[in-house]
């Protein structure tokens, strides 16, 4: 028996994540969408999805009394952050005029718009949000990349990107006007900016890899 907890802090629809995990899990795995601390502490694996703005996300985590437990479980067991669930692992986001985040990793979350405005190469205007399928260059090996070819395309929807201070955290890089960290990993934590639950077979493979990953 294995338990996966999807952390639900009231920021939108977690159904896709749930259904995709359900689709790739074996019969002995139970998946729960929950904000309950004890359930999160008891789970074997944690999925931390995210939607909406950084400010609302941090506010709801606080309202659900989850600000301390997330950094704790992230260090104890396999932990998968998705989209906003990756961004809030940083110290600070530029969204909403600046928001302090969980600070598990040193680094910031920046706006594509600012970077693009400074780009010299204006031949192709880049839209914001980045919406669609972009490639992830697997810059380090990781069990979650198992059976996924390098430079496979995943589905992205975002206007802000993560910039960790420690570049060795990057396990995936993507080009959108600049090369940015689209996946980071360290110890039991793996976090990805793309939506594996919407990335067809390769996304499902990543989720399947997560359900089989022991965090090492």
């Amino acid at each position: 028996m294995s338990q996966i907890a999807i952390i639900d802090y009231g920021m939108g629809n977690l159904r896709s994540v749930y259904q995709a995990l359900e689709h790739v899990s074996d019969d002995t795995t139970t998946i729960t969408v929950t904000a309950d601390k004890q359930t999160i502490l008891d789970a074997d694996r944690i999925v931390f999805p995210g939607q909406g703005a950084a400010r609302d996300c941090m506010r709801e985590l606080k309202n659900h009394d989850l600000l301390e437990i997330i950094p704790q479980v992230a260090k104890e067991k396999p932990f998968l952050g998705i989209c906003m669930g990756m961004q809030v692992l940083m110290e600070r986001s530029a969204e909403n005029d600046g928001i302090n985040c969980l600070g598990i990793y040193r680094g910031s979350v920046n706006n594509f718009a600012q970077v693009h405005a400074q780009r010299e190469d204006q031949r192709e205007r880049l839209k914001i949000p980045q919406m669609g399928w972009n490639q992830i260059n697997q810059c380090t090996d990781h069990p979650l990349w198992h059976d996924i070819e390098n430079n496979t395309r995943f589905y992205f929807v975002h206007s802000y990107y993560v910039q960790p201070k420690d570049s060795s955290l990057c396990t995936g890089m993507t080009d959108y006007g600049l090369d940015y960290a689209s996946a980071i990993a360290q110890d039991t934590i793996f976090a990805i900016q793309a939506h594996p639950e919407k990335s067809s077979d390769d996304g499902l493979q990543l989720l399947k890899n997560f359900t089989q990953w022991d965090g090492a």
Partner: peptide, 8 residues
């Protein structure tokens, strides 16, 4: 490498 144009 860049964002792909989508077919829907």
């Amino acid at each position: 490498m860049a964002l792909a144009k989508r077919i829907i």
